[in-house]
Design a protein around this nucleic acid. Structure first.
Lengths: 111, 111
DNA sequence: AAGATATTTCGATTAAGATAGAAATACCGA
DNA sequence: TCGGTATTTCTATCTTAATCGAAATATCTT
């Protein structure tokens, strides 16, 4: 059964959905700019003005889809972007748009 | 007011969300593989086994976010992937992951 | 104009997601 | 052990999204 591709597609859809909200896309961008150390949850919430409980749910969602990782350091939880997951997603999108199809020109993306 | 970046971010979040569902990601992939002619709505529905009314809503959503374009040819509606919109999105993601931050290595994406 | 086909819109149902205050849990330092 | 800070979980509300059958619209053909 060639359902490996189907699983991949479903996973990528979930990742896209997880980033498909302004607060969570902001979170990802912030974590990328703080890569690889990441940021403490409270710092993220302060920077983006997101209530604690709301932020916690967003971070849980991103973690569920493998887009962020978390490590505890005492009382603090450090969240980091997961570069490998983002690489997988970008490789998929790049392949679909620029390789499998020739819809997009690489030079217009890498510029 | 530096809200241009904020508008962009919101737009990219909407595009990600639009592709963040398995049926719609499949639709995009199918349209990319048929680029640039695109496909007739009924063909898409037959290939992906999606009910007509459901498909119509998915296509409307993709069109609203600028990810597909449509042209009428008699009774038929031809849907195509919008390469420019996809380029914008990929450029944004690539910049965030590989340029602004160095979280991802280009060679692992372009491979 | 009438019948046939393609596609959308309507109407309805069901499920999922976003938000946040309040309470609970985890950990540290004294 | 106790108080303090960080973070999550609980509970609740409100909105949005996914789905699809049936009816409506659009276009072609004859």
């Amino acid at each position: 059964m060639g359902n490996r591709e189907s699983e991949d597609l479903s996973r990528f859809a979930d990742m896209l959905s997880a980033m498909g909200t302004e607060p969570r896309l902001r979170i990802m961008r912030l974590l990328l700019s703080a890569h690889p150390e990441g940021m403490v949850a409270g710092e993220i919430g302060a920077a983006l003005e997101i209530a604690g409980s709301t932020l916690s749910h967003h971070l849980e969602r991103l973690r569920n889809e493998g887009l962020v990782t978390v490590r505890r350091e005492g009382t603090f939880l450090w969240y980091s972007a997961n570069a490998v997951a983002l690489q997988d997603l970008l490789r998929f999108l790049y392949a679909e748009c620029c390789t499998r199809s020739r819809a997009c020109e690489p030079r217009k993306i890498l510029a």
